[in-house]
Design a protein around this nucleic acid. Structure first.
Length: 688
DNA sequence: GAAACAGGG
């Protein structure tokens, strides 16, 4: 089964398999029993349970294929760890993983999902009062901690995939370390796939670490003799070398981004045309996160004509690091690893984000090569000499050291951690980054003069699952009578761009985007797109409400929506995501007692609210046509994707500052300079 | 006249 992102509810396969009391179901049960018993972890079950009983904090290093994620929670359940209504909670860094693992474990237990075994992720809770084994995202458990700081409903908390060191994992570990002593009779298990258990062990005061063997097929690692000047060209040469010299098997190539993937696709086609007809059975399949889901699914499909297994047609999957962990592609025998990755970096002093191409870490290279050994022995071609491998960093820099900390700090403050500098992070972010984010929160009014969470604003902001600046915008919007518009705006700003511009249809997509454009800027443009989509999806509300009608019209409006997205070059996935966020946040602000009113056609009022909310990100036009950001003094340009590109407006607010070929500001709206001194006098002193 | 690695609430 493909482990791809799935939107919406889980299907009901389990009901069916439960109902079918026939030999088929029996055979399936027997098959599952055998699979479970053959896992490397099965033989150490008793020993593992003893270790958990003996130690309050345990580190489990489980190699790929050990079965730790699915089996250990079941072991703990049967050992009696779920008595007195307590549960085992297991966190995952990704939503898909939480869902697919929970489904699998429910099947292994022979129960319906949401009963004994369930999962909980944002927008999708499949648990009930009787759920005892609960899979969830680490971010969601952090949110739970806001309501229950001791996580008292869990007898065992398992933090899985801790080696990935996501921000959420790091904060969660810090929090758990803080409260573990007070969590009476409760256990903490940290599971990691990498061999450096020492980091975790030392962090938890020399905690016990155990090792469980995995089940991976051997992968031959090959290096180049000399460094390659052009890794794209080297990848290309390697693809054809494998294609022409190796026996059958699909190839996975790790590239850094969409543009590079599309370039390699074209180059492969070009070279293919120079080969004799009999050697042209090579198909390229791209995969990266912003690719529409339907096209992403192509990596799971057999080659055209279904002759992949019959003749020697070779599939070349061109992927970003999405294929390192998030997506497991079947049939891969060869991995080509140029040794580079595109990584986000953040400069707190400039408040500027950028994406830079850097060498991978050793751990990452290992993870990539492992992708060749999922189904049988494989080969990994590293496009650099072995001596270069030795020079790589052991592991990737933890995310917490390269991101904006405003949200993390707001969460910690809400959890009662007031001394951020003294907080025992597993790896401490730089002092400068912490100071910058504290300042930011202070300017937003979330913190008081003595750096405590302010009441009510700071507490309200911490409750909302949004960037702090967006939370503040909602609070202000209720005062400006435009909360309806701001809810839509922050939902749209929280998702990947809704505008989709394929390279071949650039002009068409631009023309389509113009239908939504507002001369005032991108924020109102985003509202226009959202409302257009909403009209489409809600149009059939008047139809009599029966279950059957509901289904038919849902399917129909879904179809219309899809066509509309295609015609207008809109990313349907992003719009749906924005609608989910919108409805969740709407619920929150209603609970907070904010009044949801609309400013109607009075967009001046809305723009004034944008100025009051995003005053930290304002920029003024310079004589040369550039803009100068007030806060940081950076000289920037309006991003070409903005409706205000080349518009020469005097003063703007924006949401993002990014460094690519130039310094750009994105999501920009026209305001009056005077509004800033009026609405944010604490930041803008009057200038003559 | 540009260009979005991945992931989360």
């Amino acid at each position: 089964m493909p482990s791809m992102a799935q939107n919406g509810r889980v299907t009901t396969d389990f009901k069916q398999s439960n109902q079918a009391h026939n030999s088929n179901a029996f055979a399936r049960r027997e098959e599952i029993r055998q699979q479970r018993e053959s896992l490397p972890i099965a033989s150490v079950k008793e020993r593992l349970i003893e270790e958990v009983k003996k130690h309050d904090v345990l580190i489990i290093v489980g190699e790929t294929g050990s079965g730790k994620t699915t089996q250990i929670p079941q072991f703990l359940f049967s050992a009696g760890f779920c008595r007195e209504g307590k549960s085992v909670g297991i966190t995952q860094p990704r939503r898909v993983a939480a869902v697919t693992v929970a489904k699998r474990v429910a099947e292994e237990c022979g129960v319906e999902l949401g009963q004994k075994v369930g999962y909980s992720i944002r927008f999708d809770d499949r648990t009930s009062g009787v759920t005892r084994i609960k899979y969830m995202t680490d971010g969601l458990l952090l949110r739970e901690a806001l309501l229950d700081p001791y996580l008292s409903r869990y007898s065992v908390v398992i933090v899985d995939e801790a080696h990935e060191r996501t921000v959420h994992t790091d904060v969660l570990l810090g929090l758990l370390k803080n409260v573990q002593k007070a969590r009476l009779k409760s256990k903490l298990i940290i599971m990691s796939a990498s061999l450096d258990a020492r980091v975790f062990s030392e962090y938890f005061g020399g905690a016990r670490a155990v090792h469980i063997q995995g089940r991976q097929h051997p992968v031959d690692i090959l290096y180049t003799l000399y460094p390659e000047k052009d890794y794209v060209d080297a990848a290309l040469v390697t693809i054809f070398q494998i294609h022409l010299e190796e026996r059958h098997g699909d190839i996975l190539v790790f590239l850094t981004g969409q543009e590079e993937i599309e370039a390699v696709e074209r180059l492969v086609q070009e070279r293919l045309r120079q080969l004799p007809e009999s050697n042209r059975k090579l198909v390229t399949v791209p995969i990266f996160s912003s690719l529409p889901s339907e096209q992403q699914m192509r990596v799971f499909m057999p080659a055209p004509d279904g002759h992949r297994k019959v003749s020697l047609c070779c599939i070349v999957v061109l992927a970003t690091n999405i294929a390192e962990t998030s997506v497991t592609i079947p049939g891969i025998k060869f991995v080509i690893d140029p040794g580079f990755v595109k990584a986000r970096s953040y400069d707190p002093a400039k408040g500027m984000e950028s994406l830079i191409i850097i060498p991978t870490s050793k751990a990452q290279a290992l993870q990539r090569s492992g992708r060749a050994g999922r189904e049988g022995p494989g080969k990994c071609f590293r496009l650099y000499p072995e001596s270069e491998f030795e020079k790589l960093e052991d592991s990737t820099k933890p995310e917490i050291k390269r991101c904006n900390l405003a949200n993390v700090i707001l969460q910690l403050k809400a959890l009662g951690v007031d001394d951020i500098f003294g907080f025992d992070f597993i790896e401490k972010p730089s002092r400068a980054a912490i100071v910058k984010s504290l300042e930011h929160l202070f300017l937003l009014g979330a913190l008081t003069d003595d750096c405590k969470l302010s009441d009510p604003v700071g507490h309200q902001m911490a409750r909302l699952p949004l960037d702090p600046i967006y939370s503040k915008a909602l609070i202000l919007a209720s005062q400006f009578n435009c909360l309806e518009e701001m809810l839509i705006t922050v939902a749209m700003l929280s998702v990947d761009s809704v505008f989709y511009a394929p390279r071949e249809k650039l002009d068409e997509s631009r023309t389509a985007a113009k239908c939504f454009a507002s001369p005032d800027g991108d924020h109102i443009t985003l509202i226009n797109v959202y409302r257009a989509a909403e009209d489409l999806l809600e149009k059939r509300k008047w139809v009599p409400h029966t279950e059957r009608n509901e289904k038919i019209f849902k399917a129909k409006s879904e179809k219309i929506f899809k066509r509309w997205c295609k015609e207008n070059f809109i990313n349907g996935r992003s719009v749906r995501h924005a609608r989910d966020i919108h409805s969740q946040i709407r619920g929150h602000v209603e609970q907070m007692g904010l009044r949801i009113t609309s400013c109607g056609d009075d967009m001046l009022q809305f723009r004034r609210c944008l100025a009051a909310s995003f005053f930290i990100n304002a920029a003024l036009k310079q004589p040369e046509g550039n803009y100068r950001a007030f806060g940081t003094g950076q000289v920037v340009q309006i991003h070409p994707s903005s409706v205000l590109f080349q518009s020469k407006v005097e003063c703007v607010v924006f949401n993002e500052m990014v460094q690519t070929t130039n310094k750009y500001i994105r999501n920009v709206t026209r305001i009056e300079y005077m509004w800033l001194t009026e609405l944010a006098p604490h930041y803008y002193t009057m200038q003559s």
